[in-house]
């Protein structure tokens, strides 16, 4: 494995972490927006409680990916910045407004009252961000960003405004909702009615996400044949796992096995991401830019691996501590 491949794998792991952790925070925003029924305010409180201590740390995976990408693959970063200017900018507005709105409510609510307008901002921004990140992912995965001879074709709507990209964007939102609702069924184990609310939401999100996922494959068959080829080529093992795991996750949610469901839904996200990554290997931006072609000089890659090693040695125990303190089974609840 070359240094460039190692760093690409690390960045993909970071994307995986971002998706299963921050994705759920976006999903929390979605369920805040759609909170309804007699327990609407309890639902919102449970979401805020679950997100509060961890969302900022979850968000940093994105920063880690961005800086890792521009350090290790600077030319690819530049090309993505130009080709995906609009979806990234739109996603960024969502990310900014989501984070600020959440913090305003979490820390300002008791002094300022309900802050309801910021609640609506929190919810809608939480949908905008994953939707546009999803369309950007679709543009890359479908091979729509063409860089013949190292020069980007100036087509600023290429790939992310297609029906395929829209379906993938919606799929991303639905998966975020699926992740969030499933995690929340674990977080609300001591509150059965609330747990039932989130279980129903997880079911709904699962069905919608599953439907959109299959629809995306159908549209890809017409619009992005290269993607289907790579999913059924190198990506086949993960692709098959994703197809098999989907019903299993749905079963666990349906049978009210929250902890199994949580693992199964995380696995679902990882299988989809890794089917895509392994499928398009060794390309970073298919079909024109390979990992090797975009890679920074060896000295940079080696130094980055060292910094990443040292950084992870500090980061992983700290993350473990954070989740241990806030996400371990609450002894007060089980007593």
């Amino acid at each position: 494995m070359t240094a460039a491949e190692a760093i690409a794998a690390i960045l993909w792991l970071a994307l995986s972490a971002y998706t299963v952790l921050a994705g759920a925070d976006f999903g929390g925003g979605l369920w805040d927006l759609l909170a309804a029924g007699p327990r609407a305010s309890e639902q919102r409180e449970a979401i805020a409680e679950a997100m509060g201590p961890v969302w900022e740390a979850n968000h940093v995976w994105l920063i880690f990916m961005i800086v890792g990408l521009f350090t290790a693959f600077p030319s690819a970063f530049a090309i993505l910045g130009v080709a995906l200017y609009l979806p990234f900018t739109l996603a960024m507005t969502g990310i900014v407004l989501r984070g600020a709105a959440f913090a305003f409510r979490a820390h300002g609510q008791e002094a300022a009252g309900s802050l309801a307008p910021w609640g609506a901002v929190f919810g809608s921004a939480s949908v905008i961000a994953p939707f546009f990140l999803g369309t950007a992912a679709a543009a890359v995965a479908s091979g729509s960003i063409r860089v013949p001879g190292g020069r980007l074709e100036p087509a600023f709507t290429a790939g992310w405004t297609t029906p395929f990209a829209v379906v993938v964007g919606l799929f991303a939102v639905a998966m975020c909702g699926y992740l969030a609702a499933t995690y929340l069924t674990v977080e609300t184990e001591d509150r059965p009615e609330l747990q039932a609310d989130f279980r129903r939401r997880a079911m709904a999100a699962a069905v919608v996400a599953g439907g959109l996922g299959l629809l995306a494959l159908l549209v890809a068959w017409v619009q992005a044949p290269r993607l289907l080829e790579s999913l059924t080529g190198r990506g086949l093992p993960f692709f098959v796992l994703a197809l098999l795991n989907g019903p299993l996750a749905l079963w666990a949610v349906w049978r009210a096995r929250p902890r199994i469901a949580r693992v199964a839904v995380i696995a679902q996200v990882l299988f989809v991401l890794w089917a895509w990554a392994v499928g398009q290997w060794p390309y970073l931006v298919p079909p024109d830019i390979t990992l090797a072609a975009a890679a920074a000089p060896a000295a940079t890659l080696d130094a980055l691996l060292v910094v990443t090693g040292v950084g992870m040695a500090l980061l992983l125990p700290s993350l473990w501590l954070l989740f241990r303190v806030f996400k371990a089974r609450n002894p007060a609840a089980s007593a």
């Binding site: 740390a57 940093v60 920063i63 880690f64 800086v67 890792g68 521009f70 350090t71 290790a72 693959f73 600077p74 970063f77 530049a78 920074a296 000089p297 940079t300 130094a303 980055l304 910094v307 990443t308 040292v310 950084g311 500090l314 980061l315 700290s318």
Partner: peptide, 16 residues
Amino acid sequence: GAIFGLPFSAEGFAFF
């Protein structure tokens, strides 16, 4: 990116 990205990556961990 390849030249001055390293301190940004270190900053990423510090921010984390």
